[in-house]
Design a protein around this nucleic acid. Structure first.
Ligand SMILES: Nc1ccn([C@H]2C[C@H](O)[C@@H](COP(=O)(O)OP(=O)(O)OP(=O)(O)O)O2)c(=O)n1
Ligand SMILES: [Mg+2]
Ligand SMILES: [Mg+2]
Ligand SMILES: [Mg+2]
Length: 367
DNA sequence: TACATACAC
DNA sequence: TATGGTGTATGTA
């Protein structure tokens, strides 16, 4: 199975991409390890299917009641009163590199090295080139691909320019990474409320204007494009910002019906926190691939998963997400790691450790 | 507490 | 020739 997300990019020859990634990977230590991990996951899936099959009729009705109760509790706490905007820069590192070297415009380009690519511009993505793909495979997919080395100082600089714009809309915005942020624009939109159909339409129009203006400001201040999603909570806003990427936006109104319709056909993988493994498990054990199906299979989920996992899945099925104000997050760790080629040479290993200590003993890293 | 896994950018 | 680095959350024992 390909480690790269192949959905979402139309016009890519997925078969060919998969074949080339496989051809280039097979036989490598990396590949063998991936296969080992996949075998574990298949085992875990088998185990869960067995547990599922062993549930008695009374078990099933019990867990269905548990699920119904939790769904009711979650539903009761639904908050449609806030408006969140998620903004995410388009092909961020690559776009910054194109600003400093405009001759790259229109050409397939990746930021990174032959070993690893941090991101690729949209021209390169047409060939199936992706973030977290080794450069030598990317070059097979797209022989004319241009490589640009990473330059974090530059990305930090442009990140802070974008944040100056975000601040004007929400001084307490949440920076999720260098290239994205969550803004509570409830107050910006406060101008009107109430909910006759006409007013709702007007409000959506007004929100779209706010998002559009924000994106124009970012472009004017930085020369970079971004995409935005607006929704009643952060989880949905993040999903929405991806819908019309790049250089686009999508507004999901603060309306329960609109949210349920939106969520019904949404593939679970689109949701933040659901990745390759969870997608695989939920599909192969429960036949779940859309958010709606999380609710339908709520009983089984409550029977087989921990409280916190089951609650998360159910809340995704309801289209719920966090709406609370940001709290100051305290750093919990600081780390520094490097991958080196496999060796059993003890002398070499101790030498590496020694160099490490010499480099970092005075850096006063306090977690 | 220590360790492994999953996830995100 | 070659498959990253940093940080968070959660489950298990
Ligand atoms: N596995 C990854 C993913 C991303 N990044 C870096 C490079 C990206 O430019 C930046 C932002 O990540 P995004 O997921 O937002 O991707 P992009 O901004 O590059 O593209 P998109 O237009 O899809 O947002 O983080 C990285 O180093 N490694
Ligand atoms: Mg981005
Ligand atoms: Mg991003
Ligand atoms: Mg996901």
């Amino acid at each position: 199975m390909s480690p790269f997300l192949l959905v979402g990019m139309d016009g890519v020859d997925k078969e060919k991409v998969q074949r080339i990634v496989y051809e280039m990977s097979k036989g490598s230590k990396y590949f063998e390890n991936e296969e080992r991990k996949e075998a574990f996951i298949r085992q875990k899936i088998e185990h869960m299917r067995a547990r599922c099959a062993k549930l008695s009729a009374t078990d099933i009705s019990h867990y269905q009641k548990v699920a119904d109760k939790r769904v009711a509790e979650l539903e009761a706490r639904r908050d449609l009163s806030r408006t969140w905007l998620h903004v995410d820069m388009d092909a961020f590192y690559a776009a910054v590199e194109t600003l400093s070297n405009p001759s790259l415009k229109g050409k397939p380009m990746a930021v990174g090295s032959m070993s690893m690519i941090s991101t690729a511009n949209y021209e390169a993505r047409k060939y199936g080139v992706r973030a977290a793909m080794p450069g030598f495979i990317a070059r097979k997919l797209c022989p004319e691909l241009i490589f640009v080395p990473v330059d974090f100082e530059k990305y930090n600089h442009y990140s802070s320019l974008t944040r100056k714009v975000f601040q004007r809309y929400d001084p307490d915005f949440i920076a999720a990474s260098l290239d994205e942020a969550y803004l509570d624009i409830t107050e910006v939109c406060r101008e009107r409320d109430l909910s006759s159909d006409e007013v709702v339409q007007l409000l959506i129009f007004f929100i779209a204007k706010v998002a559009d203006e924000l994106r124009r400001s970012v472009f004017e201040e930085t020369g970079l494009t971004c995409s935005a999603g607006v929704a009643p909570n952060r989880l949905l806003a993040k999903v929405c910002s991806d819908i019309n990427k790049p250089n686009g936006q999508f507004v999901l109104p603060n309306d329960r019906m609109a949210v349920m319709t939106f969520i019904s056909s949404l593939p679970i993988r689109k949701v933040g926190g659901i990745g390759k493994v969870t997608e695989h498990i939920l599909r192969d054990v429960f036949g779940i691939s859309t958010c709606e199906e999380m609710l339908q299979k709520g009983g089984c989920l409550c029977a087989l998963f921990s409280r916190s996992s089951a609650d998360f899945f159910l809340s995704v099925g309801l289209g719920l997400g966090r709406t609370d104000a940001s709290q100051v997050r305290v750093r919990k760790s600081m780390s520094n790691e490097r991958t080196f080629s496999a060796t059993e040479d003890e002398v070499l290993l101790y030498q590496k450790l020694g160099n490490w200590r010499l480099s970092y003993q005075n850096s006063r890293i306090i977690p």
